[in-house]
Nucleic acid binder design. Structure first.
Length: 552
RNA sequence: GCGCUUGUAGCUCAACGGAUAGAGCAUCUGACUACGGAUCAGAAGGUUGGGGGUUCGAGUCCCUCCAAGCGCACCA
């Protein structure tokens, strides 16, 4: 019996109690919180439903708990149900009902952990979106890992997710990039406000190599434009390749520039003007964003006639909504959190609901440290760490896992000294090793005649088996919660617990018989549990975009 | 000055408002001539930054103070 089934059973019990007049008026909860108690003496599962719902039904918590317990024990799967403390209900399942889930998990296979909570939701997830003026740094790498993993998790719950990269190929930063390339091609110093570094020289050279034309000899403006278009294309191709090698592929690479070329920006402004949220002042065009919670109004078209950055955002958001996305999620770094109020104001100005149609996730930045001392990213000091550097040092799996296992609300410290030592203290190896072990145990079992021809769940009674079973069945709930809260790190933490439970079980309970013994029902039954653990670890690692190797 | 995020074990971090706050690393002590020791068992380590409040119950919610990071443009 799974916690989900237990939850449904309790809801039915509440309905029946209400029907029989034992409870007062009150709406029934759709589900009940079922938890694994920390203390084993509190049974297999516990619920606080009596405390949560007592007020609702006009009874006191303990007597509601008593009523529910009375009905629970009548279920065949429930061995014991007791009231504890202020009104907790502690439930112990029969060994048979607890063990049965091993088979359920194996039979669900690659579908186990997947749900339908978000079916029908069309969702746009925008992340990374780094400017194509340089390679992706460690900060952007974090969003790549988290964003892709979140997409996988949302998809596991039935959402239709589009991974999108907003490509800022318009505006002053790109101009600086183009001027820097041109200067490099001319063997000149980088402009004051420009970009420098080996990659600038390389791209400048590639631009020159890519054409028979003598770009340097062109008039200043044409030369800059030539370097802009070719340089951005090259830089972007490089970024795309890095991301691909990192296991992250976007469905849509959206070009900011296209919004200006297609007239989408003008249309967005016209739309807002029709809605009465635009005004002219001091020679500029403004959005009355202060009416929608922003600190102040925002300039959209500057007095020199150029569009401000937010103009692109207006059109881009409208474009996403026009493409049918119910929910647009933006992942931004903490250095852009000041944008949230104006983005939300924009959403409201279009008549949408901030927080629903537009959702913004703010992730804290990644700090570089060496032996505990903070290190500033600096090209001159050689302390810039790019996505490629990180992958080269620790590999894709370890990099992705390290970046995804912490909440995005916490600043992450990456210790360069630790990276250089290439130590194996990354918990990903613990989890992957557990998976490899399930695979090798299965191989050994097959060679010794242990197969899945028998399943007797009541034999799975060792403490470590009960713990493992209880942990395995939680994947669906963990995935649902991770999707709901947009928190992929929950999956990683959960997998570490599963791996721990599996290793402990492995240490206590043999799947294969000892030499001289023959394969028994217990061995065959345990093989189901072993394989169930493999399913959970494999599916969970899949949600993180981390491989599940069969041997290491 | 205002705003956002954070403050939990020596370090890096967990903990749908639930019972005795948990892992990993580091430290110490143990465990294979039997399914992979990248493992397991055990020890030690905490006034959850300080102080108030809300309630059956607060690391979690509210107020306040302290500290850190990041923002407060007709820059992008």
């Amino acid at each position: 019996m799974t916690p989900t089934e237990l939850s449904a059973a309790i809801v039915r019990i509440l309905a029946a109690l209400q029907c029989s007049g034992a409870l007062g008026e009150g709406s029934l909860p759709s589900e009940v919180v079922i938890e694994r108690p920390k203390n084993r003496e509190h049974g297999d599962w516990a619920t606080n439903v009596a405390m949560q719902q007592a007020g609702n039904f006009g009874v006191n918590p303990r007597s509601l708990a008593e009523l529910v317990c009375g009905q629970l024990v009548a279920l065949a799967e429930v061995e014991k149900a007791e009231v504890a403390g202020p009104g907790f209900i502690n439930i112990t399942l029969s060994a048979d009902a607890a063990g049965a889930i091993a088979k359920q998990i194996v039979e669900a296979g690659s579908a186990f952990g997947f749900g339908v909570a978000m079916t029908g939701i069309k969702l746009n997830l925008e992340f990374v979106s780094a400017n194509p003026t340089g390679p992706i740094h460690i900060g952007g790498t974090r969003w790549a890992a988290v964003g892709d993993s979140l997409a996988r998790i949302l998809e596991s719950q039935g959402a239709a997710v589009t991974r999108e990269y907003y490509f800022n190929d318009h505006g002053a930063q790109i101009d600086r990039f183009a001027r820097s390339l041109l200067a490099a091609a001319r063997k000149q110093e980088a402009p004051e406000d420009g970009y420098a570094g080996a990659y600038i020289d390389q791209i400048a050279q590639q631009v020159l190599d890519g054409t028979a034309e003598d770009l340097i000899a062109l008039p200043e403006e044409s030369a800059q434009e030539a370097f802009r278009s070719a340089g951005v294309a090259l830089m972007f191709a490089e970024i795309r390749e890095s991301l691909h090698d990192f296991g992250v592929d976007f469905d849509v690479y959206f070009h900011e520039n296209s919004l200006y070329e297609s007239g989408a920006v003008d249309r967005a402004i016209s739309r807002l003007r029709e809605l009465g949220h635009i005004f002219e002042a001091d020679g500029a065009t403004w959005l009355r964003s202060s009416e929608f919670g922003d600190d102040r109004d925002r300039v959209i078209i500057k007095s020199d006639g150029e569009a401000a950055y937010i103009a692109g955002d207006l059109a881009y958001y409208l474009d996403k909504r026009g493409r049918g996305f119910d929910r647009c999620i933006y992942m931004l770094g903490a250095d852009h959190h000041g944008y949230v109020p104006r983005m939300m104001a924009m959403c409201a100005a279009f008549g949408d609901t901030p927080g629903v149609n537009l959702e913004i996730m703010i992730g804290q930045l990644v700090n570089l440290v060496r032996d505990g001392e903070p290190v500033r990213m600096s090209k001159r000091a050689g302390t810039v760490v790019t996505m490629e550097d990180l992958v080269e040092i620790v590999g894709v799996d370890a990099a992705r896992y390290a970046l995804v296992r912490s909440s995005i609300n916490s600043q992450l410290d990456i210790d360069l000294a630790l990276l250089e030592k290439k130590t194996n203290d990354n918990p990903v190896f613990y989890v992957q090793y557990a998976h490899a072990r399930t695979a090798q145990v299965a191989v050994n079992a097959a060679s010794l005649g242990v197969d899945r021809s028998e399943f007797e769940p009541s034999l799975l009674t060792h403490e470590s088996e009960e713990e493992l079973l209880a942990k395995l069945i939680e994947l669906p709930r963990v995935a649902t919660t991770a999707a709901e809260f947009r928190e992929p790190h929950r999956v990683a933490r959960y997998l570490e617990e599963v791996a721990g439970a599996y290793h402990r079980w492995y240490d206590n309970c043999r799947v294969t018989p000892l030499i001289g013994q023959s394969a028994e029902t217990i061995h065959r039954t345990r093989l189901w549990l072993n394989d169930a653990a493999g399913v959970v670890l494999r599916n969970g690692l899949g949600l993180l975009g981390v491989s599940a190797p069969e041997r290491m």
